[in-house]
Design a protein around this nucleic acid. Sequence first.
DNA 1: TATGAATGAGTTTTCATTCAT
DNA 2: CATGAATGAAAACTCATTCAT
Lengths: 206, 206, 206, 206
Amino acid sequence: MSRKSNTEQRREEIVAALLAVMAEQGYEKATIQAIAQQAGLAPGLIHYHFKSKGEILIELVKSLATLSHARYLDLAAAASTPRQKLQAYIDARLAKGPGAKPEAVAAWVVVGAEAVRQTEVRQVYEEALAFELALLHTLLGDYLNERSKRSGNVRKLAAGLLAFMEGAFQLASAAQNVMPKAYAATVAMQFIDRYIDAEPDLAGKP
Amino acid sequence: MSRKSNTEQRREEIVAALLAVMAEQGYEKATIQAIAQQAGLAPGLIHYHFKSKGEILIELVKSLATLSHARYLDLAAAASTPRQKLQAYIDARLAKGPGAKPEAVAAWVVVGAEAVRQTEVRQVYEEALAFELALLHTLLGDYLNERSKRSGNVRKLAAGLLAFMEGAFQLASAAQNVMPKAYAATVAMQFIDRYIDAEPDLAGKP
Amino acid sequence: MSRKSNTEQRREEIVAALLAVMAEQGYEKATIQAIAQQAGLAPGLIHYHFKSKGEILIELVKSLATLSHARYLDLAAAASTPRQKLQAYIDARLAKGPGAKPEAVAAWVVVGAEAVRQTEVRQVYEEALAFELALLHTLLGDYLNERSKRSGNVRKLAAGLLAFMEGAFQLASAAQNVMPKAYAATVAMQFIDRYIDAEPDLAGKP
Amino acid sequence: MSRKSNTEQRREEIVAALLAVMAEQGYEKATIQAIAQQAGLAPGLIHYHFKSKGEILIELVKSLATLSHARYLDLAAAASTPRQKLQAYIDARLAKGPGAKPEAVAAWVVVGAEAVRQTEVRQVYEEALAFELALLHTLLGDYLNERSKRSGNVRKLAAGLLAFMEGAFQLASAAQNVMPKAYAATVAMQFIDRYIDAEPDLAGKP
DNA sequence: TATGAATGAGTTTTCATTCAT
DNA sequence: CATGAATGAAAACTCATTCAT
């Protein structure tokens, strides 16, 4: 009887190792040797499970996106109103509450820089962001409906929030000494609430 | 008798070459060879003018910060009201109007990723951001005064805007297909105006 | 399943190659390429087994010290009296008799020059010399006892002999045409015997 | 009227600079840039006065030999007996008394290592040592005559002393922590005196 | 599947020497 | 004579990838 394949587990271990190393070394410095050591595996084994280093990165991008969404689903489970769901989304992405992983944030920032120049990375990176943007758009739309507000600018607000969150990741990873403590989630909700409240209220009009 | 020094000029040429190469290749791929070729210089000359590749990067960070501020000063010269100055600042940083350099934006994003792990880069990067944050704080304060508003949250608003702008850079460089066109400057001013208008107006109180 | 490690053997081969190349080229000219070629290995493999060129040098210093001491132990095995042991020591260090390696002598000289400026090299170099000095001190003490002599100057005599031997290495490597043939071992024993015989004989005193 | 050539002075400055740099950096690390900086000259000027870096080294070897001999002549001027002259020689070479230059000693050690592999250096190095050996031989012969002793071994004694002194330089430069303080000059004279006193005195024989 | 040695191309850096000014 | 920029060949070191075991 042949022994059971552990490929899937190994791949996950390797991706996790890249995440850890990349968070503090960057992508180029995350050598196969370093990843192998972090994972407690032999270097040669990495290339048995992945064709190339780039393939691990791609897998990591997907993994990070999945992770983030899983966090949202977790938090959203306890939310009933549209506002609570929005709050859950913000908290999940800005890594509040249980399961926060600063090294995942740092890795995501590095991924973003790689996406600037690696086409394949950019593709999955954009896919992930497009997904988030769509989700955010929906959540914001629901929230507007709850308030009986309308806005032609939900799309821009969603884009603005997405940009804000990406920037918050960046600054949390590379300029933590400069930023105020714990501003991100608060500011995000304020942006949303005040943005929406300032919309002309069409609901009550005759 | 003595030969005239052109070091300052050469250093600027080299920094400009790094900017150009880094914008589309990233920092690691911006090899000394590539920089030299971009600048039309012999590779050895790079190290005659700079002790190391890292030193060029540090110089570039300073240069980008200076460039951005110069753009603000340019635009602000024509601004008279606090709101116009704020607008000038936003436009300058988000690279609207004349003098916009998309490659400088891309380079800044890559710099940000390097700041995650290179201590020296992080230092100058943080210095630059701290400067921007202070300036933004001042501009927002002036704007509030103009509106006879008060806010204990100017600091958080400034931080939020800074994060938003950094994120906008990131997404403009690595996810241009996902984002709406020309959302950034508009959204930034809306964040500001609505944030401020939602503040309790204390001016008229006895 | 697992591949057997040959690291220890490879490291020894590489150290031996450095010894050979350094003996006739000096340390700086003993390039990684040259060492690799001497050892019949690929250049990259050198850095797989050693972190840096300096590490190979450190290893070589230790190896030379060990080699020299092994030669002494070999020769001393056949010696019964303290004088014979001293003679064995002198012969071993001055590379008389079977197992003499002129290239090891030349390499040791080069090591000595590197010890002038490389702190790490100086450390192991000094350790090796301190060991030799202590051994020489012991051997001389035993010899004195045999002769029923006493001397407060054994320490200085040992130091003098050590210096003499190091100088003999130097001159054998760099000024062989100037020095008399085969003077070293003879002169060393004469220094010892006459030095000791000139000491006031305290043995017969009441 | 043409301006006076300062070539000779410049050459001496450059040689002195090499001495200083080489004493603490070794020969390979004594770059033209470093030499120029030490001398306070422009790098290009070095090659105006010397054809190559090696030529400076040759000049330095000669300079060091001359310096050492000048020191002997200085000290010997006040010596009347053969023993005093010997003492003067030993003191001069082992750098006792006024004019001692530890950095010259270190440089000489480095020179010795270069002599192992550079033919041209070895030539002048050997010339210098041959000169010292001959002088030492003469001084020892005179001392023997004064004592009415004879010895067929003056040549070997001279060689032994020369080796001892070179070794003392080496150990003073690279193993100062291991050696006793101020042993060298004392031990040298003891080697001489006891060596000679132990010779069979043929003078009084019938 | 797993190991770890091996390869070789590529990278930063150094530096003697040259040369225009 | 003097300056200092410029060159290009070499050096150490890195590392993804391959492969024998």
